[in-house]
Every structure is written in C-alpha cells, then in structure tokens.
Amino acid sequence: MAEAAHQIAERIPINLVVNGVGRTLNLVPWTTLLDALRDHLALTGTKKGCDHGQCGACTVLVDGRRVNSCLTLAVMMDGAEVTTVEGLASDGTLHPLQQAFIDQDAFQCGYCTSGQICSAAGLLAEGHARDAGEIRELMSGNLCRCGAYPNIVAAIQQAMGRP
C-alpha cells in the first residue's frame, strides 16, 4: 500500500454497572452509551430512534437520572450505574410501570416504549409531576409516533397509584 492505513483512536477500558452487573468494555471513544449497550452488551431493549437526542427512545437511567444515551459517550460514563429497560423487572415480576403500560395499552409498535418507561421511572424519582399536565410536559422528551400519549399518561398515573 502506498499510504499507511488510517488508524482509529485507541480503545479505552471502561467499567460500567449495567442493571446491577459489573461490565468491562474496551471502546473507541466515539462509542455512545447507546451503541455500547446495543452493539457491545447485546442489550437491545434500549432503542435508537434518531441518534440525536430528538426522540427519547434511547432513554436510560444513569445513576438514577434519565438521560439520552445517544448523546452520551460511553467513555465518559466510566464507573456509572446504568439501568435499562431490561433491568426494571425483578425476578420475573414486572415493574409497576411496565405492568401499567400493558394495562393501559400505552404503546402500539413498542419501539418508543423502553424509552418511555425508563423516562417515566426517572420522572417518578424526580417527583416534580403531580398531575396529568405536568406528566405531559415532563414526558414531552419521549416521542411516540403511534400516538399513545393519553395512554402513556394514564399508565404513569396508574403507577403513581392515582386512579
């Protein structure tokens, strides 16, 4: 070859606790947390809907806070605790939000659902949403093209223990 190959930046070792399990990865710095989860840890429950922080399908909890994993570099998360949709149910029992999403038919195609549920889990932990209007506003970072919004609000209210 006339010219040298174009070398990609070196991989960096990264430790994450994902759904309670410690994982070590060696990743090129450009790998987002979303791609690390989907492509490197086979946790495809977290979805890629836009890859630009515009849809919320990639929402996961990092140290308990909801974030867009598509705009997060995995290398910057070294040492973080990450919870994905796969980590919400315990011992086969669905998380109350998961059950509520089924009960209220809060999804159709299911593609935004993981992000909606993780986002709703973050919303409940934040404690700023007290009524339907506040839920709607604080869930507006999660697009649902099937248009399940009223049912999503109902599901979150069910999980909050409000009829």
Binding site: G53, G56, T59, R65, R66, V67, N68, L71, T72, S119, G122, L123, E126, L138, M139, S140, G141, N142
Partner: peptide, 9 residues
C-alpha cells in the same frame, strides 16, 4: 428548554 433528559445532561 429541551426535555427533562437533556436538562439532566
């Protein structure tokens, strides 16, 4: 501004 997730980040 933005969304709850983006404001967290």
């Amino acid at each position: 501004g933005a969304s709850a997730q983006l404001r967290n980040m």
